[in-house]
Write a protein that binds this DNA or RNA. Structure first.
Length: 369
RNA sequence: GGAGGGAUUCCCGAGUUGGCCAAAGGGGGCAGACUGUAAAUCUGCUGGCACUGCCUUCGAAGGUUCGAAUCCUUCUCCCUCCA
């Protein structure tokens, strides 16, 4: 089966939607946050822990798994689900972001992207066709089209050419994509230029994908600009298809994204900053290494029900970080993911109960907006 | 009792042909950053102050010198080896 998204309710005071995404590996309530497991693992988490904290769909990455351990080994396990032992839905990113983030290591051509492995420097070529083949072997429920995440700032000329190229690549991805039980999402680009966003969206809508990624945002631009481009872009996409804002984000950005009609999000932020000692809390962020928590007996967040908050004090978790103990990173990751997953559940409920406005205002206020 | 080595800024530890030394480097400490993961990573600060300069500091006291962590004298403590 292919994925199918159903809108259950539209918020009256905003562009937000409450929906349901059905996939070959189960149903996902939206808006949803998807934890990122780049290398077929959400860093430091077991599938059981992810399930317990409420995660329902994960992200993984084509570029990384292609280089190591190779798509064939994953396929030999029956795809990512068997390989990483996650029974729920999975979405794979195409490697388009690595084209952006690996910078000097790549050369972009019409055919595709020639790049050097960040692991051993070896040369490789990604084309829309090869990426579809790899994503097919990885076997996620949703595969993202191979695109180019345009840097910021970018000139109009560059953004225009890159966006047009990503559009052509999207068409080639669609033509090459053949795996059963997998759906291909197109990705809207256009940089920060509204006419390019409109053009990109129109082309992709014409190709009729089952869902749309909004890429190229949160790449260094100021938030007001990102929100402006986002709220210009979402209305350009079909009402009946899911929208996925790629690479976002922080708690405030998730709220802002939902208000602007986004249904799916992913971001490395919660897991990365967790490992680096920063926690999301109902009172804003908390840097657990700070000396003020040395003897703090309270949980990370007194309003949180995650495993870490049910059992441990700030003083203990701080101690783990200071001592370099791996459990600190694990507990912090559990907490941050739980926070975002719960945040999304709260937003879904608020949409259902017609009080998204107040809920969003309260959350944005907690994060200083 | 004899011979030798050493004491440096919170810790370890460079520096000892005198100036470029408030003093390398590491640790520790204190902060900050992180948004489709080249990240359990990276960055900054870490004697005091009235801070483009001044003051105090390299075991203690005294001395040589324009100038001393660096040279000389005495003292204190520590370590190694020989009796």
């Amino acid at each position: 089966m292919k994925v199918k998204w159903t809108c259950l309710k539209k918020d009256e005071g905003s562009m937000a939607r409450r929906g349901r995404l059905e996939t070959p590996h189960g149903t996902v309530e939206t808006p949803v946050f998807m934890p990122v497991g780049t290398q077929a693992t959400v860093k430091a988490m077991t599938p059981a822990e992810l399930e317990e904290m409420g995660a329902r769909i994960l992200l993984s990455n084509t570029y990384h798994l292609y280089l190591r351990p190779g798509a064939d080994l994953v396929a030999a396990h029956g795809g990512l689900h068997g390989f990483m032992q996650w029974q729920g839905p999975i979405l794979t990113d195409s490697g388009g972001f690595q084209v952006f983030s690996l910078g000097e290591l790549q050369k972009i051509r019409e055919e595709g992207v020639e790049f050097r492995s960040h692991i051993d420097g070896s040369k490789h070529l990604f084309t829309p066709e090869s990426v579809m083949d790899i994503e097919g072997k990885l076997g996620a429920d949703i595969a993202m089209a191979f695109d180019e995440c345009i840097p910021y700032p970018a000139t109009y000329e560059y953004a225009k050419a890159a966006t047009a190229r990503s559009g052509r690549w999207a068409a080639r991805c669609k033509a090459a994509h053949c795996r059963e039980n997998q759906s291909l999402f197109g990705i809207v680009q256009g940089g920060m230029y509204k006419d390019l966003r409109a053009q990109s969206a129109a082309e992709l809508v014409e190709m009729d994908f089952p869902g749309y990624g909004i890429g190229g945002l949160s790449v260094g631009e100021e938030k007001p600009l990102m929100y402006e481009v986002l709220e210009h872009t979402t209305p350009l996409l079909p009402q009946e298809k899911p929208r996925y804002l790629m690479g976002v984000g922080s708690p405030d950005c998730l709220v802002a994204g939902v208000l602007r009609g986004v249904d799916m999000f992913d971001c490395v932020l919660p897991t990365r900053i967790a490992r680096n000692g920063t926690l999301f809390t109902s009172q804003g962020k908390l840097v657990i290494r700070n000396s003020q928590y040395k003897e703090d007996m309270r949980p990370l967040d007194e309003q949180c029900s995650c495993y870490a908050c049910r059992h441990f004090s700030r003083a203990y978790i701080r101690h783990l970080f200071i001592a370099g103990e791996i459990l600190g990173a694990r507990l912090a990751t559990i907490h941050n993911l739980h926070y975002l997953v719960s945040l999304m559940a709260e937003l879904r409920l608020a949409i259902e109960e017609n009080r998204l406005g107040q809920t969003a205002a309260r959350l944005l206020n907690a994060w200083g907006y």
